[in-house]
Design a protein around this nucleic acid. Structure first.
Length: 316
DNA sequence: CTCGATCCCTGGACGC
DNA sequence: TGCGTCCAGGGATCGA
């Protein structure tokens, strides 16, 4: 599941392998995860991929040049050199199962390859996503700015003051805040749980209740964990691989995520799993004591409530 | 404002 | 072997 470190890993890989290449053609198969599929087909051909950046869990393929279609119109119009070039980008969110990687055209398409960008060096940049929880969008100018402004601070860059201000601004639970992309961009379920464990903070603790020392510990621990994970090229839980098809190694370092029922590495207590903000949350009930008013080990834990809810017959 | 519930989607795990 | 069922999760959306 690509979170900040995984997206950073893929972005770096693409930066070193496809930056500078020009897009020749766009081929779409399934396109229900694309904001405006025709915009991709219209705007991308002829564009150069100037560079690839990570923005939260998004990859930003910064585009340069003019679309092939507009070349004639542009040459007909008067001095366009005075016009500031519009920032343009292809946004790619990998969702849960997205992959974006260069391939040689003789490599067979896989079942869920939905977008193929033919490059000027003979390769193809392919987007594959079985579950289609990902997202793709071509955005330019004000629309691009507006989209990016929806997101909060980068957890690697956020200052002590801004972090404290953002977390303490809300009465939500800390786990929900860490997952909220409008608060911090790039943190997902794995790294939220890992950071809370390291900082010894219970996931249901309310943001406004965190004292300054807790906040600063959390910020630093989150940052350390993310940097270490980037160093190890991310966590490969289900099928994450980088742009070169290589899995990451950080899953070996998970302290709580996916370890329900196992022993805490600090105190040997049994790691618990509860649902917070609709997501499974793993924590140590001893190291991360429940805040006042929350029974940490039973009763209020919604753990297995509604587990047996009958499922609507699958309609397709 | 914050919450949970629901939906999207499919592969993989599991039980029988 | 094969089928049915459950489950995972990021994000949008809606109602409480």
């Amino acid at each position: 599941m690509p979170e900040l470190p995984e997206v950073e890993t893929v972005a770096r890989g693409l930066q070193s392998t496809v930056a500078g290449r020009r897009i020749l053609t766009v081929k779409l198969r399934k396109s229900d995860f694309i904001d405006d599929p025709t915009a991709l087909e219209r705007e991308l051909p002829g564009r150069q991929i100037e560079r690839i950046e990570r923005f939260g869990k998004f990859m930003l393929l910064r585009l340069a040049g003019v679309p092939a279609q507009s070349v004639q119109e542009l040459s007909a119009s008067a001095s366009s050199s005075s016009i500031e070039p519009l920032a343009e980008a292809l946004l790619v969110h990998l969702g849960m199962t997205g992959h974006l990687a260069p391939h040689f055209p003789d490599q067979p398409l896989t079942k869920h390859t939905h977008v193929t960008l033919e490059l000027d060096d003979g390769r193809e940049l392919r987007y594959t996503d079985a579950r289609r929880f990902g997202r793709m969008a071509y955005l330019a100018g004000a629309a691009l700015d507006a989209e990016l402004e929806r997101f909060g601070a980068d957890p690697l860059l956020v200052t002590k003051e801004e972090f404290a201000q953002r977390i303490r601004a809300s009465h939500s639970r800390i786990k929900a805040l860490l997952l909220d992309q409008a608060v911090l961009r790039g943190v997902g379920n794995i790294y939220a749980d890992e950071a809370l464990w390291k900082a010894k903070i219970h996931p249901v603790k309310i943001g406004t209740c965190l004292v300054p020392s807790e906040l600063e510990t959390l910020r630093k621990d989150l940052r350390k964990i993310l940097l270490k994970a980037i160093e190890l090229r991310g966590s490969s839980i289900s099928d994450f691989v980088d742009a070169g098809g290589i899995p990451g190694d950080y899953q070996q370092h998970h302290k709580v995520y996916g370890r329900a029922g196992e022993s805490c590495f600090r105190c040997s207590a049994k790691i618990k799993r509860i649902i917070v903000a609709g997501r499974s949350s793993h924590f140590c009930p001893h190291c991360q004591p429940a805040p006042r008013g929350v029974s940490g080990s039973r009763g209020h834990s919604r753990k297995n409530a509604k587990r047996n809810r009958p499922r609507a017959p699958s309609k397709r």
